[in-house]
Design a protein around this nucleic acid. Sequence first.
RNA 1: GGGCCCGUAGCUCAGCGGUUAGAGCAGCGGACUUUUAAUCCGUCGGUCCAGGGUUCGAAUCCCUGCGGGCCUACCA
Length: 501
Amino acid sequence: MPSERELFDQRLSKRAQLLESSDPYPARVERTHTAAEAVQAFLDAGEVDEQVAVTVVGRVTAQRVMGKAAFLDLRDQSGRIQLHFRRDRLEDFDRIDLVDLGDFLEVSGTLFRTRTGEVTVAVAKWRIVTKALRPLPDKFHGLTDTEARYRQRYLDLIANERSREVAFTRSRVVSAIRRFFLDRGFLEVETPVLQDNAGGAAARPFLTHHNALDRDLAMRISLELHLKRLLVGGFEKVFEIGRVFRNEGISYRHNPEFTLLESYEAYADYEDVARMVEDLLGAVALEVLGGTDLTHGEHTVSLQAPFARTTYHRALLDHTGIDFYQYRSVDALSEVARERGVRTEAGASWGTVLDALMSEFVEPKLIQPTFIFDYPTEISPLAKRKVDDPSVVERFELFALGYEIANAYSELNDPVDQRDRMMEQASKKAEGDEEAEIADEDFLVAIEHGMPPAGGLGIGVDRVVQLMTGEHSLREVILFPTMRERQAERHELSDEDDGAS
RNA sequence: GGGCCCGUAGCUCAGCGGUUAGAGCAGCGGACUUUUAAUCCGUCGGUCCAGGGUUCGAAUCCCUGCGGGCCUACCA
């Protein structure tokens, strides 16, 4: 019955038939072994047929029915195990007609090895524990339609081993990061997602509204300003792994919500943080991959410390021949940028033009992990100035495979300088720069009470997962990436009568 | 945002101006008690993304829209 409607109705009617004698959705199921454990138990018991009894549960992924016998494949999270049903052993053998691919079964029996060598459950007792109403993707070709893979990730996870692997790797990356910080004595905290003002990064926020308070709120774009308040409060090492939201374009490198790690350590500076980042990435790679080398297409990247280091000024000079100290005005700088084919927008600031040059000529070349130190003050309003050159700050970014992995500074804790720089950002914002930093008065008041010298760090966790998995698109490492709204869903089949047909 | 490509059965795909749009898998009926992409016979199944246009004739060509992918630009 090929139309979606017919397939659905057919399964509904099987469900109704099951209901006559049993519950196709029981709350309680038995399980003595996972699929993998069952096979192992058979091996451990000396591979004697029909000796080891197991009860396994899982989803039916293949059926090979032969009149008086049937083989079904049952899959659980641990793997797959084959089931053998025989008419001469089962009074309810014919009920396998009510089983469809995708149903969940609870099966008890003993283990044996088939003629072709596969460890198999000789089924003595079985029942359907979840009746599925919609068909699964093609058992052989799987699900390849990228849109369907993202919109219906559960189908992707059923059909594609790789998608499961990436999800597992992501989980391991996050727990490795968390363990790294906890082991170093950092306190894990959670700070507000809903805020008066979204600050701490150059990005546009999502805006929302609290009805009871009749108050507009913004969703956070970074974790920074609240974590620093905790430094004021006396915590010396804090970190947060949390979702942030940026109201910007969507691409294979950008999702409107992504996971950011930020850490702050009192009495450390950015040099200390750089060493910590080397340790962190090495530790994560070791735990997730078992080594510090990883291959990405034609590139082999080594996360073995120490990473290459250069400065913003040096890197730009090396890759473009531009010595930005020679071009102190926006106009002069824009002119050389234009000569090199970098178009700059009308209201672009000096720092923005520099950043455009870096993005164009330097960052794509940074395949091996490379620290870029000492950023222009103008594009780093929350970082502490270098003592010997106030036009640059103690800030580094770490690049690998051509994209930014980490961003860190010696945190600006002079409240007067901070206020001045926030006001400068605020006036840019007033002039129409939507990504300029806001002046957060509450934050300024906080640091006016004294924030200890500290090294801060931000890492895009999704990017680290990309690095570790070798996935090209961010959407492959985010289980449910943001998608455009889909109109005219044609999936609403269930509001017909649910028994009959 | 710009450029290129894609959208046909539940899934994977063919058909690219000419009868009534096809195949494999899945489904349904039948045969088959150790199969594993089971096999064999039969069979059901389509808003060819949507709307408009060109044409004697459109899944096929053109336009618009919707959705997606890749590349590119900003951010992490």
